[in-house]
């Protein structure tokens, strides 16, 4: 099997590391060689963050390079645009339809681009989800990232039961039920 390349991008503090842990869990459970590369430290303070996940028979390089991603999961619109060129030509972009203004926009030094999802849809296969609204429907805005995982799961090669098993093993015991519900909500969107 050819090595699969997944990227998760977002804004520091959005909880992309939990998503990468779940992806690490499911690919390892399936017996693949896996490498995952994360950003800790200063960028986690509201900066642009990116996680690379690669799995296959044997994986050497821990990062995904431009033009190589099979799936790009973006937690925020602007970050989807920033990293879209990492996608392969037939790659899938899953984007959470949320806008978080970077400080450059807040101070007026830059403008937040308009029509990001429409423009990206012309070039890539884009699946857009308003995960924050869906999460609020479940009564807990924090599980929006698990909803995104649910959406992404449909575009990856693992069984639904396996995802649920990994979620059970990864999230804090107290939040297993709400996270399972969030995954289900994303999966059936």
């Amino acid at each position: 099997m050819e090595t699969k390349n997944i990227m998760i991008v977002g804004v520091g503090g959005q909880g992309t590391l939990l998503t990468s842990r779940i992806l690490g869990g499911i690919t390892t459970a399936a017996g693949y060689d896996v490498k995952l590369s994360e950003v800790h430290g200063m960028a986690q303070r509201g900066g642009s963050v990116v996680t690379f996940v690669r799995y296959g028979e044997t994986v050497a390089e821990p990062i995904v390079e431009e033009g190589q991603a099979d799936v790009l999961i973006a937690f925020e619109r602007l970050e989807a645009l920033r990293y879209a060129h990492f996608l392969k030509k037939d790659g899938v972009l899953i984007v959470n339809d949320q806008r978080i203004d970077p400080i450059t926009v807040v101070t007026g030094a830059a403008k937040y681009p308009e029509n990001i999802i429409e423009d990206l849809s012309k070039k890539y296969k884009v699946i857009s989800v308003d995960a924050m609204t869906e999460a609020k429907k479940l009564g807990n805005s924090k599980v929006f990232n698990t909803i995104i995982i649910g959406v992404a799961a449909k575009h990856m090669d693992f069984a639904k039961e396996d995802w649920i098993k990994v979620i059970e093993n990864t999230v804090p015991a107290k939040t297993v039920d709400i996270n399972k519900a969030a995954f289900e909500a994303g999966y059936t969107l």
Binding site: V11, G12, G13, M42, A43, Q44, R45, G46, G47, S48, E66, G67, L78, E79, L81, R82, A84, H85, P102, I103, T104, V105, A109, A110, K111, Y112, P113
Partner: peptide, 18 residues
């Protein structure tokens, strides 16, 4: 020669105080 898409021009998102 590696042919790559040109990255979109987007506002920077540097780290900030929470």
């Amino acid at each position: 020669e590696i042919e790559l898409e040109t990255p979109a021009e987007v506002p920077a998102r540097p780290p900030i105080l929470c």
